[in-house]
Amino acid sequence: MSNINTNAEGKIRVEFSPNIRKHIAIEPCEINGQTVREVLESVFESVPELRGYVLDDQGAVRQHVTVFVNDDTIRDREQLTDPLAANDRVYVFQALSGG
């Protein structure tokens, strides 16, 4: 958890929806990083089993998962290159699909 802090000034806050936390124990955390890929990789480094729930086997965001940066969904779902600024919030949700 070296890059992850739960209360740090200027860091990126990353949160996962309850549906994901039903399967993998992951609390909101704050991380340094320049892109969505960087901060998620930091989380996966600490919680490796989370990766397969968020990304597919080619490293893209799963079809039925959505990632927001603040109020907007990310644009690059394959490489996750969307840039981040200090104090941004990254939210990972399940999509509104299925039944």
């Binding site: 399967h23 397969g52 729930y53 998962v65 399940q94 999509a95």
Partner: peptide, 8 residues
């Protein structure tokens, strides 16, 4: 087969 999170 999770509806959102793929195969496990």
């Amino acid at each position: 087969q999770h509806g959102h999170f793929g195969s496990k």
